[in-house]
Amino acid sequence: MSPTPRVTLYGKPGCHLCDDARAVVAAVCAELGEEFEEISILDDPALAERYGEEIPVTLVDGRQHDFWRVDPERLRRALSG
């Protein structure tokens, strides 16, 4: 059984900010040996209601970390701490 990914990225297809965030999250996670999961808010009405105006949203260890843009240094610090 693999461990639960520490990073979750909420977004939706066709979102250019989501594409940018995915690239940053993927690079930082690969660098640090971490996994991440990506979830489309379109698959869950509650997520669409909660995050619809803020996507992409990243969570680290279940807590909201960033929205709209992902700062790679800030994400590295959160995952290293």
Rank of each mutant, 00 (worst) to 15 (best):
L42N: 04
A46Y: 05
D61K: 00
I55S: 03
V57Y: 01
A26N: 05
P13C: 07
R22N: 09
E31S: 04
L75D: 13
G81D: 13
E53Q: 10
E37H: 07
I41H: 04
R76V: 09
L75Y: 09
K12V: 00
L17R: 15
R74W: 03
E54P: 01
A78S: 01
C29W: 08
C29Y: 07
C29N: 12
E54M: 13
K12A: 00
D66A: 13
D71T: 10
V25Q: 11
R22E: 15
D43H: 11
H16Y: 12
C29Q: 07
E38C: 01
A26C: 04
I39E: 12
P45Q: 06
G14P: 07
L75H: 08
P13D: 15
Q64V: 14
L59Q: 02
K12T: 00
E31A: 04
L42Q: 05
V25D: 13
W68P: 05
I39A: 07
A23W: 03
G11F: 00
S80R: 12
R63C: 03
V70T: 10
G11T: 06
E37R: 15
A21M: 07
A48H: 07
V57G: 08
T4A: 14
R22A: 14
L75I: 08
R69M: 06
L59W: 00
L17F: 11
M1E: 14
G11M: 01
G52S: 06
Y10F: 14
E38L: 02
R69L: 10
P13M: 06
Y51T: 10
D71Q: 09
R69E: 13
C15E: 09
R76Q: 12
P5E: 15
E54F: 12
L75A: 09
C15L: 10
Q64L: 08
V60N: 10
Y10L: 10
P5T: 15
L9M: 08
E54L: 14
F36H: 15
L75G: 11
R77F: 02
S40K: 06
V70P: 03
E35C: 02
P3M: 15
A27V: 07
D66C: 09
G33K: 13
E73D: 15
S80H: 05
